[in-house]
Design a protein around this nucleic acid. Structure first.
Length: 328
DNA sequence: CATTCGTGAAGACGAAT
DNA sequence: ATTCGATTTCACGAATG
């Protein structure tokens, strides 16, 4: 396919052999016959002008993918349009309407016509912005899907996330922020709302944005959209942490119990729920004589050992209180 | 020796101004 | 934008088993 291209002259390659030799660079010489080398930018090839040997062929071929053997066939197969550009979101392929109230011959339009054109401009602008939002959305949804799979989040969470993202898009929250960041935030919020929260660290690990940007964007999105995201329930982390630490069911049950006791006593207000969950997952095995170090829990939960210590003191206190209340 | 515990300094965050 | 209070983290040393 590529080898024959050097000899064919069909398609949009209307330049003659002489033209291309004069306008192209010829710094190199053909290794086969010593003839001048010609770079054909349109087909992404560098070929010898004498023997046709292709020296470089792995650049982008901008020529047509079809071949035509006479002019009628060419008319049939050719698809027309301006060259594409990366400067515009739609690569310049969409309709544009001139601002001047002139027709194609330069004549001024009637008032009636002018009004019509004004309406057309309005609609055309709407289609273009809609178009670019569509692209934006598609990329974001792809990202949400990718991260959701990486985090093992179920389908309904992805749907919630995409709804949140759409709202962000409609409320013009995107300018100045990355698609990635907003997508990550939407997924994080959705997971929390669905009661299957992931920690900020887990999110940041699968996201393509830095943790700092992610947190900033998340706060912004929540505030602007008035999202109601209740503080995560520590209990929702317990199962995951417990299984990663190979805890017994007994210990896991105990951990939940302690968290419930703590919740009733309002010990958890203002504290990082992850830290509380970590403390419970550390404290429970102590009571069931399983060996789990603070360091183990710290690694699994991404919480410092100090915080585990602080929380678990409070947790034990609350649990004992609750226990005595139950006895009394 | 490993693990746990407690502390003070420092950073980060949200709220209020 | 700054300040303030609460929380979390880090680094360290001491205590415990």
């Amino acid at each position: 396919m590529t080898e024959t291209r050097a000899w064919t002259t069909e398609g949009t390659d209307v330049r003659t052999q002489e033209e291309s030799t004069t306008e192209s660079e010829r710094e190199h010489v053909c290794p086969e016959c010593g003839g001048a080398l010609v770079t054909d930018e349109e087909h992404g090839e560098t070929a010898c002008s004498e023997c046709g040997l292709i020296v470089e062929a792995d650049e982008v071929d901008r020529g047509p993918e079809w071949r035509a053997f006479d002019s009628s066939e060419r008319d049939e197969k050719a698809r027309v349009g301006s060259p594409t550009t990366k400067m515009m979101h739609d690569k310049g392929l969409s309709t544009t309407i001139d601002w001047q109230n002139k027709d194609a011959y330069g004549n001024t339009l009637s008032a009636n016509q002018r009004e019509k054109m004004q309406r057309l401009r309005t609609w055309n602008r709407r289609f273009q912005t809609r178009d670019h939002q569509e692209r934006n959305l598609r990329q974001a949804l792809g990202e949400i899907d990718r991260m959701a799979s990486a985090l093992g989040l179920p389908e309904n969470v992805r749907e919630t996330a995409s709804v949140i993202y759409r709202r962000a898009l409609e409320d013009d929250l995107l300018p100045g922020r990355s698609i990635e960041g907003v997508a990550t935030s939407a997924l994080y919020a959705a997971a929390r709302q669905a009661g299957v929260p992931r920690t900020i660290d887990e999110m940041a690990r699968v996201s393509r944005v830095e943790e700092e940007e992610f947190k900033r964007t998340y706060r912004y999105v929540v505030r602007e959209l008035n999202l109601e995201v209740a503080p995560a329930d520590p209990v929702s982390y317990v199962t995951r942490f417990a299984s990663e630490l190979d805890l017994s069911d007994e210990a896991e049950r105990l951990a939940r119990e302690m968290l419930d006791a703590a919740k009733e006593r309002g010990v958890h207000s203002g504290k990082n729920p992850v830290g509380l969950a970590a403390a419970a997952v550390y404290a429970a095995p102590l009571l069931t004589n399983e060996k789990v170090t603070q360091q183990d829990v710290s690694e699994v939960a991404d919480i410092s050992e100090v915080t585990i210590r602080n929380r678990y003191r409070e947790l034990l206190a609350a649990y004992e209180e609750a226990g005595q209340a139950a006895v009394a």
